[in-house]
Computed example of a mutant assay.
Amino acid sequence: MNEMWLHRADLAESAINERHAQAVWSIPRTNLAVAAWPPHTKEKLFYRWHYWWQAHYLDCLIDAATRRPTRSRKQRIKETIRGIKVRNFGSFTRNNYYDDKLWLALALGRAHNLFGLRRPKYLKVLENNILAGVDPVTSVFPWRVGETFFNVPTNGPAAIMLARRGNLGQARFIIDWIFDNLIDDNGLVMDGIRMSMNGPEIVKPTHPYCQGVVIGACLELALRLKNRPDAREDAVIYLAHLRAVVHAVEKEMATPQGVIDWKTGDGDGGLFKGILVRYLAEVAVRLPDDNEANSATKKIAKRLVMASAESLWNHRLEVDGLPVFATDWLADAKLPHNYGLTTNSLSDFVRIVRIDERDLSVQLSGWMLLEAAARIAANEK
Results as ranks from 00 to 15, higher is better:
residue 298 K to M: 03
residue 207 H to S: 10
residue 335 L to R: 03
residue 111 A to T: 10
residue 326 A to Y: 08
residue 192 G to Q: 06
residue 96 N to P: 15
residue 91 S to Y: 11
residue 294 N to T: 08
residue 263 K to I: 15
residue 265 G to M: 05
residue 319 V to M: 13
residue 226 K to V: 04
residue 64 A to M: 09
residue 355 I to N: 08
residue 235 A to I: 02
residue 234 D to V: 11
residue 189 V to A: 02
residue 282 E to H: 13
residue 96 N to G: 15
residue 134 V to C: 02
residue 211 Q to S: 06
residue 267 G to D: 10
residue 167 N to F: 15
residue 101 K to E: 13
residue 142 P to K: 00
residue 66 T to G: 09
residue 314 N to L: 10
residue 197 M to R: 15
residue 34 V to K: 06
residue 183 I to W: 12
residue 143 W to P: 07
residue 76 R to F: 06
residue 313 W to V: 00
residue 27 I to S: 01
residue 220 E to V: 02
residue 381 K to V: 11
residue 215 I to D: 03
residue 305 V to P: 04
residue 199 G to N: 11
residue 347 S to D: 08
residue 36 A to H: 14
residue 71 R to K: 13
residue 3 E to L: 13
residue 243 R to A: 01
residue 257 Q to H: 11
residue 73 R to W: 15
residue 254 A to M: 10
residue 259 V to A: 01
residue 140 V to Q: 02
residue 80 T to W: 06
residue 80 T to D: 07
residue 149 F to S: 00
residue 175 I to M: 07
residue 314 N to M: 11
residue 348 D to C: 00
residue 40 H to E: 11
residue 236 V to H: 15
residue 258 G to P: 00
residue 346 L to T: 05
residue 345 S to N: 08
residue 208 P to T: 05
residue 273 K to V: 06
residue 355 I to E: 05
residue 115 F to Q: 03
residue 363 Q to D: 01
residue 167 N to Y: 15
residue 357 E to H: 11
residue 269 G to D: 07
residue 66 T to F: 14
residue 328 D to N: 13
residue 179 F to E: 02
residue 189 V to S: 01
residue 26 S to E: 14
residue 191 D to P: 12
residue 253 M to L: 00
residue 263 K to Q: 15
residue 86 V to L: 12
residue 300 I to N: 01
residue 132 A to N: 01
residue 55 A to V: 01
residue 374 A to P: 09
residue 313 W to D: 03
residue 297 T to L: 06
residue 14 S to M: 12
residue 189 V to W: 01
residue 42 K to A: 13
residue 353 V to Q: 14
residue 215 I to V: 08
residue 141 F to Y: 11
residue 247 H to E: 09
residue 121 K to V: 10
residue 380 E to S: 13
residue 197 M to L: 14
residue 266 D to E: 11
residue 305 V to R: 02
residue 279 Y to G: 00
residue 174 I to Y: 08
residue 222 A to S: 05
residue 42 K to P: 00
residue 223 L to H: 08
residue 251 K to C: 04
residue 290 D to F: 11
residue 227 N to F: 10
residue 110 R to A: 06
residue 42 K to Q: 10
residue 197 M to Q: 15
residue 39 P to D: 06
residue 327 T to I: 09
residue 374 A to K: 08
residue 225 L to H: 05
residue 206 T to H: 07
residue 2 N to A: 07
residue 339 Y to S: 04
residue 258 G to Q: 02
residue 265 G to R: 02
residue 221 L to N: 02
residue 304 L to R: 04
residue 81 I to E: 04
residue 49 W to A: 03
residue 155 N to Q: 06
residue 377 A to E: 07
residue 95 N to K: 10
residue 26 S to K: 12
residue 261 D to G: 05
residue 348 D to Q: 10
residue 317 L to M: 09
residue 23 A to C: 12
residue 203 V to G: 07
residue 177 W to V: 03
residue 74 K to A: 04
